[in-house]
Design a protein around this nucleic acid. Structure first.
Length: 763
RNA sequence: GCACCAGUACCUUAAGCGGUGAAAGGGCCGGACUUAAAAUCCGGUGAUCCGGGUUCGAGCCCCGGCUGGUGCACCA
């Protein structure tokens, strides 16, 4: 810029220029695993193909991208890529609304979202992006289904689903509005239907154990750990074996080990393996069957309406008091899983309600709640108790009566019964021209899909027409980005044997919203299963993610954003007005990741101003510098002469200021580095801004001291600004790189984007 | 109802282990520049939800309350 004109800050232009350059250079292509530098797979969340990137995505990916760019700058090899979660109900509903096929719908949505993400300048490796609804990808689901089926971790059971008689279809929970169908508003009922289940219960104990290891590693933030603990639902207590009149025993659990004498009843889950033994009477059994087949009415899901069956039987009290009535109720499941528990009204509100409802008060409350227990009952504990643990996390259904999902690779043959599709026949292709209407499952009406031959006897058979819930797809979605795209179409056996998986897994860090707790939990579970089965045996602790950050959501006016409230922030509009760098910086600056971000314009304005000031200031100093450089080349410029004098007169007068500037730069880089390592992005951004203030302060002080900058002063200033640009790259990459380019001395073209160590080096 | 999180100026956020006079930005007011407005620059303005406790010392730790948010209620 030796002509002296200073380009004004125009985000649209410079961002387009940088993005074009990155694209040309293939700047974010995943490095080959041949190298021996440290590797990090940074896992962003897999977005639903909803159609638009919202501000929550911007936050999530800005955090992940800052971390990814930081790691690259430090010389690490980074895999930063994701696949779209493109199956499932939202897409199906979107397609119905848009009157197009789901596959067309998700393709269109994904293309648009990719465009938005590119415009934001995120450093994803786009070559590895995929859609879970592509046949080459959903065969992973089918393979996983069969693998888990073989291992006994997928099983067929009977469960209740919401059903609309008018529309002749099963409904997802979100399609039920106040107990009525979302389309016809007729009442919905729960029906009994065979479903496929995932047995996560087999691994809850190990998940629990590993969780403390993850906590000890320091790589999991508190939010993420808390969510894992919550999903696990661990309850510590004691269990004891109680005797019935006929000598039969039942193991019961209670979290209130110190209040056994207050027990007033025993509740058994309808899912308890021995429940039949306790509900043996014909009449009681009939009611149990009724409970099972009718499911639970939506209105009956609170303690005062929860179904209860009095079995008429009793068990001895653990402390020698009155015998305890035995009831069966699903209220047990939600809190302790499929088990039997002591009902202790004094310690548990639900128990109190149940006791009041079901049992004759005279029988139950022989001891008034506030009185001490009667003599003898505490003293003579007759039943020994032992420490025990229960988990709320439970097996869940993975099949859906929907047409936009992975076909379940199962056929039903009259002769052979249920037969899995052999792996070499995968994938079972989902017809793409299916048009869901919301009534019934159109897949079931497609003869060309349903009619098939039995893989075992060759006779005629029909396919399973339920599909897998997209939650099941999420179990493996984090794996395929580790596979080079050229290998993607290979057999899964080949892919699973690739060194790439061993090189990239476990993921160094997953960065996702705090609502991902269930996904992560189930991914952790399945990883352990695949370790034991074989394909992921190299993950010894069965943990797919070494580290995890769950950030909170973006809210507005103190509440969740929703169209209804009219407080939705549109990223496109913001980008158009302020540019991607400003928006990215603003979402990082406005709150630390673990806290919900209350959207405000002031953060945007602050960041825009910061970037503009940084731009103007830096460009002016760079221009001045190169002007001085050219002039001092000439023999007799008057300003060069003046500078000569200044140098002779006062270079050492400002040496302490240059020293201090260097100190400032060092500590700033130190702090920013530490912040980034801990993903404390908002603190890092603040420190970047503070560094800018200090650089300007330095210049002011030098001028106050001597009236102008000597060559050494200027050189230090330029070096500091260049360093500032380098540490800004993770947060506002476009402007940062443009400034670095502008800082280059004439004749140089290669910018140094590596992470600074801290000391100011003159160019 | 239960669980978790949060409450700092008019607004949005800061304040490593408890440690000077609680820090920024926006807003607002005044000034500079401008025919005027916007933008930009300079200056000014002002706060720890309530009640207890621990401590030499509390925005930070403990207990209780109030307010707001999020999650959960057999649900993936």
């Amino acid at each position: 810029m030796s002509d002296g004109t200073i380009p004004s800050y125009d985000p649209q232009t410079i961002e387009a220029r940088r993005q074009h350059a990155w694209h040309e250079q293939g700047a974010f292509r995943t490095p080959d695993i041949a190298g021996d530098r440290p590797r990090k797979y940074i896992k962003p969340s897999a977005p639903f193909t909803s159609g638009n990137i919202h501000i929550g995505h911007v936050r999530s990916y800005s955090i992940g991208d800052a971390y990814a760019r930081f790691c690259r700058a430090r010389g690490e090899e980074v895999l930063f890529a994701f696949g779209f979660d493109s199956f499932g109900l939202p897409a199906e509903l979107g397609a119905i609304a848009g009157k197009e096929s789901p596959s067309a719908w998700v393709d269109r949505c994904a293309q648009h979202m990719i465009g938005q993400l590119r415009r934001l300048g995120f450093s994803f490796d786009w070559e590895r992006t995929f859609m879970s609804s592509d046949a080459v990808m959903y065969r992973w689901s089918q393979w996983l289904f069969l693998t888990l089926l073989d291992a006994g971790l997928v099983y067929r059971g009977t469960g209740s689903v919401d059903w609309c008689d008018t529309c002749q279809t099963t409904l997802a929970t979100i399609q039920v509005e106040n107990g009525t169908c979302w389309r016809c508003h007729d009442p919905v009922r729960l029906i009994q239907r065979p479903q496929w289940y995932l047995r996560i219960s087999a691994y809850v104990e190990e998940n629990d154990r590993r969780l403390s290891e993850l906590a000890a590693s320091g790589m999991w933030d508190e939010n993420a750990l808390a969510s894992q603990r919550f999903v696990l639902g661990r309850v510590d207590g004691v269990e004891l074996d109680l005797c019935a009149e006929d000598g039969a025993t039942l193991t019961v659990f209670t979290p209130h080990s110190g209040a056994l004498e207050l027990a007033r009843f025993v509740a058994i889950s309808p899912k308890h393996p021995e429940v039949e033994r306790w509900a043996g009477d014909a009449e009681v059994h009939e009611r149990l069957e009724e409970l099972r087949s009718g499911g639970l009415e939506r209105s009956a899901r609170e303690a005062d309406a929860m179904p209860l069956i009095d079995t008429g039987r009793t068990l001895s009290s653990p402390t020698g008091g009155d015998p305890l009535p035995v009831i069966v109720s699903p209220m047990v499941d939600g809190r302790f899983g499929a088990t039997a528990v002591l009902g202790i009204p004094e310690h548990d509100r639900t128990d109190a309600v149940i006791a009041e409802r079901l049992l004759a008060p005279a029988r139950v409350f022989q001891t008034p709640p506030d009185q001490p227990a009667p003599e003898g009952s505490t003293a003579s504990q007759t039943v020994p108790s032992r420490a025990a643990v229960r988990y709320r996390a439970n097996d869940f259904t993975i099949s859906r009566q929907r047409s936009w999902g992975t076909p379940i690779p199962i056929v039903y043959c009259e002769k052979c019964g249920t037969a899995p599709v052999p792996r070499e026949q995968l994938p079972v292709i989902l017809p793409l021209d299916v048009k869901p209407t919301g009534a019934g499952n159109p897949l079931a009406e497609r003869a060309d899909f349903v009619e098939t031959t039995c893989p075992e006897c060759g006779g005629s058979a029909r396919r399973e027409t339920d599909t897998l819930d997209c939650h099941f797809d999420a179990l493996w979605l984090w794996i395929p980005v580790c596979v080079p795209s050229r290998e993607r179409e290979q057999t899964l056996e080949h892919i699973l044997a690739l060194e790439d998986l061993r090189a990239w897994l476990p993921s160094e860090r997953v960065v996702a919203g705090s609502d991902s707790g269930n996904f992560v939990f189930d991914q952790r579970t399945v990883t352990k299963a695949l370790r034991d089965i074989g394909p992921l045996e190299f993950l010894e602790d069965g943990e797919p993610f070494a580290g995890c950050l769950f950030h909170e959501m973006v809210i507005s006016d103190g509440r969740k954003m929703s169209k209804h409230l009219g407080n939705v922030v549109d990223p496109d509009e913001l980008i158009e007005r302020h540019g991607a760098d400003t928006i990215r910086l603003a979402v990082l600056y406005a709150a630390r990741p673990q806290r919900s971000l209350n959207w405000s314009d002031s953060a945007v304005q602050r960041c825009r101003r910061f970037l503009k000031q940084l731009w103007d200031y830096s460009q002016a100093r760079f221009a001045l510098d190169s002007a001085a450089a050219t002039e001092s080349g000439g023999a007799n410029g008057s300003s060069a002469e003046a500078e000569q004098t200044a140098t002779e007169m006062g270079a050492d007068k400002t040496e302490h200021l240059r020293k201090r500037l260097e100190q400032w730069c060092e500590t700033a880089v130190e702090k920013i580095t530490e912040d980034l390592g801990e993903l404390e992005m908002h603190s890092a951004v603040r420190n970047v801004m503070r560094l800018f203030d200090r650089i300007r302060d330095y210049e002011k002080r030098v001028i106050a001291k001597r009236g102008s900058l000597c060559a050494e002063d200027r050189e230090a200033l330029i070096a500091a600004l260049a360093m500032l640009a380098r540490v800004l790259i993770p947060f506002a990459p476009h402007i940062a790189e443009e400034l670095l380019i502008a800082s280059l001395p004439p004749g140089t073209s290669e910018i140094d984007t590596s992470w600074p160590a801290g000391e100011l080096v003159s160019r």
